[in-house]
Design a protein around this nucleic acid. Structure first.
Length: 108
DNA sequence: TCACTGACTCTCA
DNA sequence: CTGAGAGCCAGTG
């Protein structure tokens, strides 16, 4: 039952996202080794075993749009957290990936 | 063990 | 150009 080898990897990557930066599910999936794992990435954050430790609010879809089902308290909290870190979030709950996109590896 | 679900992504009409 | 559908992987029931 799900040792969560991939999940653990996803969690580790998400925790490596520097403050004021965001990344996409597809990017995380790519870092895990499979670009098609994007769905699994979302599911991994969905279970979110350690909220507060795993900055799910820094994870968005490929368009930069925030997720609908958030584990911290709601899309509203996610937007506030991003703005608090210096990330400008549009009224549509979308961030500028051209500025805040994190490719991974380059932690602060 | 098998089948279904899912916070995504891509391609075709 | 816009909309809808199928595909993919891993985890849970």
């Amino acid at each position: 039952m799900a040792n969560g080898a991939v999940f653990q990897k996803i969690y580790q990557i998400v925790k490596q996202i520097p403050k004021g930066k965001v990344t996409t599910y597809g990017q995380i999936a790519l870092l895990c080794g499979n670009p098609r794992m994007s769905r699994v990435v979302g599911y991994a954050l969905h279970v979110n075993p350690e909220p507060g430790v795993i900055p799910c609010h820094r994870v968005v879809n490929r368009f930069g749009g925030l997720s609908s089902a958030f584990a911290f308290g709601g899309i509203n909290e996610q937007r506030l957290l991003l703005e608090a870190e210096g990330v400008y979030v549009r009224p549509d709950e979308t961030v500028d990936l051209s500025v805040y996109f994190w490719a991974g590896g380059e932690t602060e």
